[in-house]
């Protein structure tokens, strides 16, 4: 029961014969395969990095150390106190989203982030991490009293403003990656009609330009935006203590 569409991708309903035809029981196979592949790549890369770091001199070791140092610098610039505590989650976000956005450079694999379910999950993780850290940082009472800061009437505004961050993070990532995916797809549909356009696209480098821009450049920038926004939400929760 596979059906393919440019807007929804491959879908599979394994329980259809038992009467479960609600969309909840639908599996998005592209997303699942992409996510599994990304996770495998990251695990293999981490094991390799662990292996490489024991060497004395190596170019790979230098690259890995520079990558981690860059993330540390980013954290130290944005957060005022205890920055390296969050290196694990921020680094994981950045690495995972970059790999997800650029995985479409491999043929027949599509980005998991063009599915709203993936980006919503990422948004929820970011939201719960930030709020959980705020509760741990200032205590449950202090956390709740922040919602009624100037006076009690501001409570609904604060609640809505906090919940907005999920929508803001997840829909921004989804919209950008999905838009880039559709544009790249339309371009491929456009050139596949005749061999002349295919050869022209191949030789002039226009194919490479399109796939590099929408596959690589846009993906890295959106991953960076997601990470920066999570960091900014985190830093808002930390600043008040520094002032007092």
């Amino acid at each position: 029961m596979e059906n393919n569409n440019i807007l929804t991708g491959h879908q599979w309903q394994p329980l259809l014969r038992y009467g479960f035809d609600h969309p909840f029981w639908t599996l998005h196979t592209d997303t699942l395969i992409g996510t599994a592949l990304v996770t495998t790549i990251i695990i293999i890369f981490s094991l390799y990095a662990h292996h490489v770091l024991q060497r004395k001199k190596s170019i790979s070791k230098f690259i890995i150390i520079q990558y981690v140092k860059g993330l540390q610098n980013l954290l130290q610039q944005s957060l005022h106190s205890a920055p390296l505590e969050h290196l694990a989650i921020i680094g994981s976000f950045f690495t995972f989203i970059v790999c997800c956005n650029t995985i479409s450079l491999i043929p027949y694999i599509e980005e998991p982030t063009k599915d709203l379910n993936t980006t919503l999950a990422l948004g929820f993780i970011s939201f719960f991490y930030v709020q959980g850290y705020a509760i741990k940082h200032s205590g449950l009472l202090g956390y709740l009293s922040e919602f009624t800061q100037p006076f009690i009437l501001m409570l609904p505004l604060h609640v809505i403003g906090t919940l907005t961050s999920i929508i803001s993070l997840s829909f921004r990532l989804f919209g950008n990656i999905f838009g880039g995916y559709i544009i790249a797809h339309l371009y491929l549909n456009l050139i596949e009609f005749s061999p002349i356009t295919q050869i022209f696209g191949l030789l002039s480098g226009f194919n490479l330009l399109v796939s590099l821009f929408f596959g690589f450049f846009e993906g890295v920038i959106q991953a960076f935006v997601f990470t920066m926004l999570t960091l900014t939400y985190l830093s808002m929760k930390i600043v008040p203590e520094e002032e007092s």
Binding site: Q77, S78, T164, I167, S168, F171, R172, G175, V225, M228, L229, L231, T232, Y233, S235, M236
Partner: peptide
């Protein structure tokens, strides 16, 4: 003062952009 300014700027940009996201939804 790049880090401070950019932090506030990204937060403001994200907040303002949210209204377009509401329209999108």
């Amino acid at each position: 003062h790049y880090s401070k300014i950019s932090n506030i700027c990204f937060l403001a940009l994200a907040m303002i952009d949210t209204f377009a996201i509401y329209g999108f939804i």
